[in-house]
Measured scan of single mutants.
Amino acid sequence: MSIQHFRVALIPFFAAFCLPVFAHPETLVKVKDAEDQLGARVGYIELDLNSGKILESFRPEERFPMMSTFKVLLCGAVLSRVDAGQEQLGRRIHYSQNDLVEYSPVTEKHLTDGMTVRELCSAAITMSDNTAANLLLTTIGGPKELTAFLHNMGDHVTRLDRWEPELNEAIPNDERDTTMPAAMATTLRKLLTGELLTLASRQQLIDWMEADKVAGPLLRSALPAGWFIADKSGAGERGSRGIIAALGPDGKPSRIVVIYTTGSQATMDERNRQIAEIGASLIKHW
């Protein structure tokens, strides 16, 4: 067993022997301040990774656009098919120029040779490549099948209805392509620590998230040296922004954090800054 596999296998073990965790309302004060600064709703939840206990939450059962955070769930569904012998990570998928959609920095470079399922998941999570996500959605049967996968996990809230990039439209009061912070946090925890996926697939999923290259201005910008984070960000229309993450000190994750916002007129930089400040408060009061 590799060191990384050992780390993920012992996530519940280490967490069980940690000192009790206590909620700190100071972080919620910052979440509410972010709402004021952005002029928009902000949803927040913080779960203990081992027990699933909610440590703090704000608007945990209000719907927010998922945006690209759905790509972690998508690759979880792909990995479940791999575990069941219905898919192979090494299978190569070929596609054409007509398949390319807006923001496809990886797939646009491989029109000639195609990409493997493993490479597509890596591109979808680490670079948020939209064509990679659409190609992977095709392998599982489309958005409705991802929703069905989530329902089978016990998540009857999260739903995907459309493809990239239309799913980022974020129309107010439109339930399409949305989740709730509580539902997303619980589902992410199941994917990373539950028995739904094999140990190898859980490790692969967290490795992809740990290698995320496009979430630097968010929670990662607030992390002290030595902290662990595996995350996936999302951005959408109407001032929408979000991030889902597993993080913790001492090089291992111990909490799940989900943050979503929508309806702001603020710039992307300002949305990023507010999420980073929430992260800084979380870490300060850990």
Rank of each mutant, 00 (worst) to 15 (best):
M67E: 03
W227I: 00
M180K: 07
S221W: 14
T116M: 12
Y44L: 06
D231N: 07
L89Q: 07
A148K: 07
K109R: 09
Q265T: 07
T131Q: 04
I206L: 10
T267P: 08
I93A: 04
L205S: 00
D83F: 02
A84S: 12
L55R: 11
T126W: 04
E166H: 14
E46L: 14
V157F: 09
G141F: 05
K144G: 09
T193V: 11
A182F: 13
V42R: 01
L205G: 00
G52F: 05
P65V: 05
D48V: 05
H151G: 09
L146W: 11
P249K: 14
D212A: 05
G114N: 11
G216R: 10
R91F: 06
E277T: 06
L197W: 02
W286K: 02
Q203D: 06
L196Y: 10
M115V: 09
R81W: 14
L160V: 06
I256F: 10
G226Y: 15
T147D: 07
R118P: 05
D113I: 13
I125N: 03
E277A: 06
D207A: 09
S51H: 07
L136E: 00
A123D: 03
H151M: 08
D174F: 03
R92L: 10
L55M: 08
G236F: 02
A40C: 10
A40E: 05
L146D: 00
S201R: 09
M153Q: 11
K213N: 08
H110T: 15
I45F: 15
A280Q: 08
V106M: 15
Q204M: 07
L137R: 00
P224M: 04
V106P: 03
Q97C: 12
A280W: 15
L160S: 07
M127V: 11
I256Y: 04
I54E: 14
I259S: 01
H151E: 09
E62V: 08
G43E: 02
D99H: 13
Y44R: 00
R91Q: 15
M127I: 12
E195A: 14
K284I: 15
L167V: 13
L160D: 03
G142T: 09
A246S: 08
G236C: 04
E166F: 11
D269F: 11
G263P: 05
P217W: 14
K109H: 10
T261C: 13
S264W: 04
L136S: 02
N152T: 14
E195D: 15
E277Y: 06
G263C: 13
Q265N: 10
E102D: 08
L218Y: 02
A266Y: 08
V117T: 08
A84T: 12
H156L: 09
I171G: 15
E35I: 04
T178A: 05
S281Q: 13
A266C: 14
L205T: 03
S57A: 09
L218K: 03
M66L: 08
G279H: 03
A132N: 01
T69N: 01
I206T: 11
A245E: 00
E277P: 02
S68L: 00
D155M: 02
R271M: 13
R162A: 10
M184S: 03
T27R: 04
F70D: 03
D99I: 06
W286V: 02
V78D: 00
N130F: 01
T193P: 01
G52R: 05
D231S: 05
G76A: 07
A266P: 05
T27V: 14
H24E: 08
D174Y: 02
L167Q: 03
W227Q: 01
S240K: 02
V257R: 00
S80W: 15
E210R: 12
E210C: 08
D33C: 07
G216H: 11
E62N: 07
Y103T: 07
R59K: 15
L223T: 13
E56H: 07
R59S: 05
W286I: 05
